[in-house]
Amino acid sequence: MYKKILVATMGEYIDEIIDHTLDIIGEENTEVIGLYVVETSVPFLTLKKVKELMKEELTKLGKEILDSMEKKFQAPHRYKINFRKLLLDGDPSEEIVKTAEKEDVDLIVLGTGKNMIDKRLLGSVSEKVVHSAPCTVLLIRNEMKTK
């Protein structure tokens, strides 16, 4: 049904996201793009070296997350999946939407599970993506958090 899927994660709910995506794909030939966005925005008066350190650490984390995604999507029995990694810098919701438009994907898969307080304080990437996505969006609810 979906030929090209964008799977975006910030590291949370990664297992649930992968499992649900694999369920949807089934035995179909599908192109999957794994996306991690390094959030580069920092407040005014942040030390330059600290800003560099944050970017470095988040890039390292992003690579690890994408590698673990690659392992699952590229397992030998999943030969029908064509997986690609994408590591970008910027605002996560903006980059997810931009990538979906540029790559012309059919589906965006994202995790969600923040409570009301977290949404207010930290903001919600999934909410922003849902409002401006050019295609269908699948939100994977984190069961551990919502229980």
């Binding site: 008066l45 600290v50 944050m54």
Partner: peptide, 23 residues
């Protein structure tokens, strides 16, 4: 302590806990 506040708060929100509390 404004520099500590911006570093600690932003790194905690980005999940960089060691940088946050270590600072």
């Amino acid at each position: 302590s404004i520099p500590e506040l911006v570093v600690t708060l932003s790194s905690a929100m980005k999940g960089l806990y060691e940088l946050s509390i270590g600072t």
